[in-house]
């Protein structure tokens, strides 16, 4: 899990162009949206692409992302349960 969490943080910083943010800046429980990392609706869509590209998980409905993308931890838990690659 710890490996997956670091992998996720690194990838999120890269694909969402979070310049000036390092993996140490992102807490496992920090909210990704709103006051936390301040991600927005386009970032959420980009995370859906990331899920499919890196882990073979297809989310058809953008609303599904709401619970999954709460924090790095919720994302990692969902991925480890549902990944196909």
């Amino acid at each position: 899990m710890e490996k997956l969490i670091i992998e996720l943080k690194t990838e999120i910083i890269k694909v969402l162009n979070l310049e000036d943010i390092t993996i140490e800046d992102i807490g496992n429980d920090d909210p990704l949206f709103g006051d936390g990392l301040g991600l927005d609706s386009i970032d959420a869509l980009e995370l859906i692409v990331l899920m499919e590209k890196d882990y073979g998980i297809k989310l058809k409905d953008a609303n599904q992302g709401r619970d999954i993308f709460k924090s790095i931890l919720t994302m990692a838990e969902y991925i480890s349960k549902n990944r196909t690659i």
Binding site: V15, L16, I42, D43, L45, E46, V49, E52, K53
Partner: peptide, 9 residues
């Protein structure tokens, strides 16, 4: 094929 929404916009 992984269309990127953040590029498309």
């Amino acid at each position: 094929y992984f269309p990127s929404p953040s590029v498309f916009v």
